[in-house]
Amino acid sequence: MSHTPNDDFPELIETMKRAAAALRDAEVPFLLGGGMAAWARGGPPTDHDVDLLLRERDAELALEALEAAGMRGERPPEGWLLKAWDGDVLVDLIFRPAGGPVDEAYFDRASELEVVALPLLVASTDDVLATKLLAMSEQDPDYRPVLEIARALREQIDWALLRERVDESPFGAAFFTLAERLRILPDAHETNHRVVPFPTRRARASGDVSGPA
Rank of each mutant, 00 (worst) to 15 (best):
W159F: 02
R55C: 09
G99L: 06
D86F: 08
L113C: 07
S169M: 07
L12M: 10
Y143H: 03
T177I: 11
G42A: 06
A98Y: 09
A68C: 09
D49Q: 05
F30K: 08
R144Q: 14
K83W: 14
S2P: 13
E155Y: 07
E164T: 10
A174L: 14
R181M: 12
E114I: 05
H3T: 00
S210L: 15
E56L: 11
G73E: 04
T15G: 08
L54R: 11
S124Q: 04
D7I: 12
P45K: 02
L63S: 10
F171Q: 11
P77F: 08
R201K: 13
V89R: 15
R109K: 12
V102D: 07
M71E: 12
T4H: 13
S124M: 01
P170K: 08
L81E: 14
L23I: 01
A174M: 14
A123F: 11
V115T: 04
R204L: 13
D8W: 10
D208Q: 11
A105V: 15
P101Q: 12
E112W: 10
L182W: 12
P212Q: 09
E114L: 14
D208P: 00
W159V: 03
E104K: 15
A62S: 10
P170V: 09
A135Y: 03
T177W: 12
E180I: 09
L147D: 07
P29D: 01
G79R: 11
L161T: 13
R55Q: 13
G42F: 05
G87W: 02
P199D: 01
S137C: 00
P45R: 00
L185Q: 04
R151Y: 05
F171R: 07
E64C: 04
A37D: 07
G99W: 00
T125S: 05
P141L: 02
G70C: 06
R204H: 13
E27W: 01
L53G: 02
L147S: 07
L147M: 06
R18V: 10
R181C: 03
K17P: 06
L31A: 05
L63I: 04
L93F: 09
D86V: 00
T15Y: 02
R96A: 15
A62Q: 06
K83M: 13
R183V: 06
G100Q: 10
